[in-house]
Amino acid sequence: MQWTNSSEHTVYENPWFRVNLADVVLPDGRHLDHYLIRLRAVAVATAVNEANEVLMLWRHRFITDSWGWELAAGVVEDGEETAAAAAREMEEETGWRPGPLRHLLTVEPSNGLSDARHHLYWTDEATRVGHPQDDFESSRREWVPLKLVPDMIARGEVPAANMAAGLLMLHHMRLG
């Protein structure tokens, strides 16, 4: 059954997102007012070294008041390619410059509420270039054994669904 967005208008906007109200037509012909959030694409990147360790960040998210492991991520700027944004974010947040990035997967973390798409990339080559420019984004950056990832996710140590999906895919590809 397909819902149809017959029209929508913006009710709030800022540089990071828009909140829109859509007039949605249900399959039986009824109309439904549905709020949705329009977001820029997000690019995510990490590296896996020869020891099958993955580069991760330990950070606090004030919105949920929770700590967890994540990968470097950020908004894709206007006109920027997603892979270039992923590389930029990885270097800014970790101090490691990625080698050639490979697309891992694209996920829609909240497609019942927003149009957000997160594009995840990885590399098996990274060069340490110094202290992270955006060191305020995480408390620490570590190379974590990939074999530990499934148990970390099961314990809730990787709370973000996009990060968990990417890490499980990497685990499967490298160790599965």
Results as ranks from 00 to 15, higher is better:
Thr123Tyr: 12
Ser138His: 00
Leu36Gly: 09
Met163Gln: 09
Ile63Leu: 06
Val129Ser: 10
Asn5Ile: 08
Ala51Pro: 03
Pro109Ala: 12
Met1Leu: 09
Ala84Arg: 09
His131Val: 09
His131Asp: 01
Val76Gly: 00
Val48Pro: 04
Leu148Arg: 06
Gly156Trp: 00
Arg141Phe: 00
Ser66Tyr: 05
His171Gln: 15
Pro150Cys: 07
Ala43Glu: 08
Phe136Val: 05
Val48Asp: 10
Leu146Gly: 08
Leu113Asp: 09
Ala43Gly: 03
Val149Met: 14
Ser139Gln: 05
Gly130Asp: 05
Val107Asp: 04
Ser66Met: 09
Gly74Trp: 00
Asn20Lys: 15
Gly156Phe: 11
Arg141Pro: 09
Pro145Phe: 04
Trp96Thr: 04
Ala43His: 06
Glu81Lys: 03
Val24Trp: 07
His9Ile: 00
Leu32His: 10
Ala126Asp: 08
Ala154Tyr: 09
Arg61Pro: 08
Phe136Lys: 01
Gly29Cys: 02
Ala51Lys: 12
Arg140Met: 01
Met1Arg: 11
Ala73Ser: 15
Val54Tyr: 01
Asp33Ser: 08
Gly95Glu: 11
Asn162Val: 14
Ala41Ile: 03
Val158Pro: 06
Val144Tyr: 00
Glu13Asn: 07
Gly176Asn: 08
Pro150His: 11
Val76Asn: 07
Trp3Tyr: 14
Leu168Thr: 13
Leu55Ile: 12
Arg155Tyr: 08
His119Phe: 10
Ala73Tyr: 09
Val76Asp: 06
Glu91Phe: 01
Val76Leu: 09
Leu57Ala: 12
Ala47Gly: 06
Gly130Met: 06
Met163Ser: 14
Glu93Cys: 11
Arg38Ser: 11
His60Ile: 07
Asp23Thr: 13
Ser6Gly: 00
Ala126Ile: 02
Asp115Pro: 05
Val107Met: 03
Glu125Arg: 14
Arg97Ile: 02
Val42Ala: 04
Ala83Cys: 00
Tyr121Ala: 08
Glu13Asp: 10
Leu32Asp: 02
Ser139Leu: 10
His34Asn: 03
Ala161Thr: 15
Glu108Ser: 15
Pro98Asp: 05
Ala161Met: 11
Met1Gly: 12
Pro132Phe: 01
Tyr35Met: 15
Val107Ser: 07
Arg38Ala: 11
Val149Tyr: 06
Glu13Lys: 10
His131Phe: 14
Trp69Val: 03
Pro27Leu: 10
Glu125Ser: 05
Thr127Cys: 06
Asp115Thr: 14
Val144Lys: 00
His171Trp: 13
Trp16Tyr: 03
Pro159Met: 14
Pro100Arg: 15
Leu168Ile: 13
Glu77Gln: 15
Leu36Thr: 12
Ala72Asp: 07
Tyr35His: 13
Thr46Trp: 01
Glu70Asn: 05
Ile153Met: 01
Val19Arg: 06
Phe136Arg: 02
Ala45Met: 00
Val149Asp: 13
Ser114His: 00
Asn49Met: 07
Thr123Val: 05
Met56Asn: 07
Ala87Val: 02
Ser110Met: 13
Ser7Arg: 07
Tyr12Ile: 05
Glu108Phe: 11
Gln2Ser: 04
Gly95Thr: 03
Leu32Pro: 06
Gly130Asn: 00
Gly99Ser: 05
Thr127Ala: 09
Asp124Ala: 11
Arg117Asn: 11
Ile37Gln: 12
Thr46Pro: 06
Val144Asp: 08
Trp122Gly: 01
Glu81Arg: 05
Ala83Ser: 15
Pro145Cys: 01
Leu146Lys: 02
Asp124Ser: 15
Glu50Gly: 08
Asp28Gly: 07
Ile153Gln: 04
